[in-house]
């Protein structure tokens, strides 16, 4: 399962960021695939990106003059969320993959959570409401509204968009200033923290994780627990990278369906299924 997940993560990242011409020339893909959104957080200004970012799409719609219900973005959220829930985070998100790989670096004593996790875990909902929604509707920069989350926080945009574009495009590089340094600082902080703590951005800041978390309880893809076969050895709890209890696995908005509990169970009473929990 571990190898399968890594393979899926790598393949999905490569396929959805496979526009090589963009990386070589410091440009981005301009074709019709960008009418659609990928399920994970994937900056559409990444030179390789062949589709749009769902959070970027939501902000683009909220940035319009007047207010319009952002049906197109909500449609992607409901579709991906109802089918997959936070399986997207665990298996299909490029920035999740980056954090997974960073956490494998064998330095520091690893931590599953930050101190005050029970408070900090709500940070992603604050980011979703204040930066993605309110910020994008009411924050103006000059004569246009700004996508506040992309502009002030998104580390995926810095890593997948800014760094490759600026390294290949001298004109853009010459314009980088204080804002770029701010975003670079955020990226560096998250990169360093990811080496010690498991997926800090996903657990505490990602607005897409907040959205998909709401769908976790009833999404099609679930981790099914056969309670009658369970010997309560708690190997699943020990293996869970986000420190969920047996009762919370699959149901909790924090479960990213990584499948480590499935691998760890000696009785094979946990498995991926569309059935859900007993």
């Amino acid at each position: 399962m571990k190898r399968l997940r890594l393979t899926v993560q790598l393949l999905f990242t490569i396929v959805t960021n496979g526009y090589l011409y963009g990386f070589l020339n410091g440009k981005i893909y301009r074709g019709s695939l960008k009418y659609a959104c990928v399920p994970g957080l994937n900056c559409y200004s990444c030179p390789g990106a062949v589709a749009s970012c769902p959070i970027g799409a939501l902000q683009a719609l909220l940035n319009q003059r007047g207010f319009q219900v952002p049906f197109a973005a909500l449609g992607f959220f409901f579709l991906f969320g109802s089918l997959l829930g936070r399986f997207v985070c665990g298996w299909l998100c490029p920035f999740g993959l980056v954090q997974d790989l960073l956490h494998k670096i064998p330095v520091f004593q690893k931590k599953k959570r930050l101190p005050c996790h029970h408070v900090l875990k709500y940070g992603k909902y604050v980011v979703l409401v204040l930066l993605v929604c309110v910020g994008s509707m009411f924050l103006w920069g000059g004569f246009a509204k700004v996508p506040a989350f992309c502009k002030y926080l998104c580390p995926s945009g810095t890593l997948l968009g800014a760094l490759p574009l600026l390294s290949a495009n001298a004109a853009l590089r010459s314009q980088a200033g204080g804002l770029f340094l701010w975003k670079l600082g955020i990226l560096l902080a998250i990169v360093l923290l990811s080496v010690k703590v498991y997926r800090p951005f996903c657990q505490y800041l990602c607005p897409l994780g907040a959205v998909y978390g709401w769908f976790n309880r009833f999404s099609l893809v679930q981790i099914h627990w056969e309670q009658e076969r369970c010997v309560s050895c708690m190997a699943c709890e020990k293996a869970c990278p986000v420190a969920l209890s047996l009762r919370e696995i699959s149901r909790s908005p924090e479960c990213i369906r990584c499948g480590k509990c499935v691998d760890a169970c000696p009785e094979k009473c946990l498995h991926f299924s569309s059935k859900g929990r007993n």
Partner: peptide, 11 residues
């Protein structure tokens, strides 16, 4: 999505 998002890349 087809224009480089200057906000996204910190410019």
């Amino acid at each position: 999505a087809i224009m480089i998002c200057l906000e996204c890349i910190g410019i």
